[in-house]
Design a protein around this nucleic acid. Structure first.
Lengths: 235, 235
DNA sequence: GTCTATAAATCGATAGAC
DNA sequence: GTCTATCGATTTATAGAC
């Protein structure tokens, strides 16, 4: 939505507005890490940019609107990272690992934004429905690999515990139109998405400190485990 | 550490101090949900209790010390929940599910405390080393089930992707003295712990909204999947 | 141990001059 | 569109009377 404003700036006025909007978002992202998302302060952003606190209200009319812009931008960037890492011509196991690594790398260089997306929700703030579209891009990248493996006939059968179709939301069953996922396949993609976010969160939040010995190596191991569970074959 | 103060109160003075310490902790826990952990305010706690803001410094000499007490108390409670749910005489699959459900129930009724433990870390705050002991109790409960299944000779062999022993911290390899876990078994317990926290976080933070259709049912399915991966046999 | 008073900051948001 | 000034509130923390 705000990125729309930054495309095709025609007049000098529009360009100036787009640039300042960008600077506000960048400053806000820098500040996410200093006091946490819930303490994000419009005033502090204004101070960092050398502008009056009231001037910023011309760009974002509330703190929540700025938060929404940051969240959608974050979901889009992590979706970009996942899609950019994916080479549809490669083998499923390689695609899977590449997507996982792309997401992790984005998270490592944008840890506060990752926390904004997947950490504790900001109290009193509710993300608008349109954020769901951007939020779905990363798990969809994972689903695409599974769908392609299934179409190629190389998807492994589900492991022992199977998923009751009644547990999956009707809308989610159609998450990848044309893929023809059954409940088990859908559930395995959901758990893969949850696993990816969960293991990155553990690494970023220090829960693996003195538990694992090699973060990148354990992450790759987790990716293999997750991919195998999803039905992909790893060498 | 603070709970020590509450055991064996001898004089009336000590009992009064213990009770007020308890009230401060309870009030702080109530406030965790209002503005998030990073906004936890000693003054607001004092106000809620009808005491002067300065008086509270007699009980906790800083906000970080109060946070530490809350974190250790939370880890201990979730460890209690896991241990209380475990019946060592039951079958491994039943024990596993019971522990999972016990942890989820604690999280559902203490969601802000759960977020304090496993959500975004509070900026500028570092948990003291002694918190690690309390933090380990919940995953240890999971490990105990796996260890007992191994001792009984009913632990399934590892699934295809195996874990390089170099990826596990040397201290973690001894996480359950006497269990004789190898790297694969240790890694599977770590991932089970991560899975449990991850799926509860997803449920609490709304990421499963309109994705799954039955939170409790999908949680049980996840528990079965996780237990099977850990090597337990589910009917 | 509890109180008042205070220090030196911060915040979101608005009004109104220019 | 940007500024100053302001409102009414918040915070952590300390000093000192009682």
């Amino acid at each position: 939505m705000y990125t729309d404003l930054m495309n095709a700036p025609r007049t000098a006025r529009q360009r100036a507005r787009a640039e300042l909007t960008r600077e506000i978002l960048d400053a806000a992202r820098r500040q996410l890490g200093e006091a946490g998302p819930s303490a994000l302060s419009l005033r502090a952003v204004a101070r960092e940019l050398g502008m009056a606190s009231s001037a910023i209200y011309r760009y974002f009319k509330s703190r929540d609107e700025l938060l929404t812009a940051l969240i959608i931008e974050g979901y889009d960037e992590i979706g970009d990272a996942a899609e950019a890492a994916d080479d549809p011509a490669a083998e499923p196991d390689e695609r899977w690992t590449a997507i996982w690594r792309g997401v992790r790398e984005w998270a490592l260089t944008n840890r506060h934004e990752f926390a904004l997306l997947f950490g504790t929700p900001v109290p009193g703030y509710a993300a608008p429905p349109q954020a769901a579209v951007a939020a779905g891009r990363m798990p969809l990248a994972l689903a695409r690999v599974v769908a392609d493996a299934k179409a190629a006939g190389v998807l492994a059968p589900p492991p022992a515990p199977t998923c009751d179709p009644a547990l999956i939301d009707a809308g989610t069953a159609e998450l990848l139109p044309g893929a023809g996922f059954d409940a088990d396949e859908t559930a395995r993609v959901i758990l893969a998405w949850n696993r990816l976010v969960g293991i990155v969160s553990y690494e970023l939040h220090g829960h693996l400190h003195r538990v694992t010995a090699d973060d990148a190596g354990f992450f790759d191991y987790t990716a293999r485990v997750s991919g195998a569970f999803a039905g992909l074959r790893f060498a």
